[in-house]
């Protein structure tokens, strides 16, 4: 019974724990990309986090609300994924007040930018390898 491809939620176990473990047979189809590249950065690979990092890559900083609007997501979802990126120091967050309104601003760190570039290289290398192998 094949599982739907790439369906992952914030409730999934932390990515680092599964990074180097062999693929379970049930994940052959759903986990092909991850299994093909054992060094794939799973922190960035998750779709919402990939969106956050991509958006911050072309902006000095973005507020929580700008990111929420851009990625068309909920407060809770964005907050969970942004915190995950903060934990691994791919993004940094600063909180301030604009008048009486709290303002949360995110920036991509040097480590985050490098990780993003590495991820892009992985994807491009994968496509290239597939084309050459075809």
């Amino acid at each position: 019974m094949a599982r739907p491809a790439m369906v992952r939620t914030s409730a999934d176990p932390p990515e680092r724990k599964t990074r180097n473990t062999p693929a379970a047979p049930a994940r052959i189809e759903s986990g092909t990309l991850e299994n093909s590249l054992p060094h794939l950065d799973r922190i960035i690979h998750e779709r919402m986090r990939l969106g956050i990092v991509s958006a911050l890559a072309v902006n000095e900083s973005l507020t929580f609300n700008e990111l929420k609007k851009l990625l068309q997501t909920t407060d809770g979802n964005l907050s969970v994924h942004a915190r995950r990126l903060e934990e691994v120091r791919y993004v940094e967050c600063s909180k301030s007040f604009e008048g009486r309104m709290p303002k949360t601003e995110y920036r991509l760190t040097v480590a985050g930018r490098k990780a993003f570039e590495r991820y892009l290289d992985h994807m491009e290398a994968l496509i290239q390898a597939m084309r050459e192998g075809a």
């Binding site: 990309l33 690979h45 990939l50 994968l126």
Partner: peptide, 12 residues
Amino acid sequence: SIDRRAADNLRF
């Protein structure tokens, strides 16, 4: 499948 998903990621 891998090829398409990588391309889809880059498009995203």
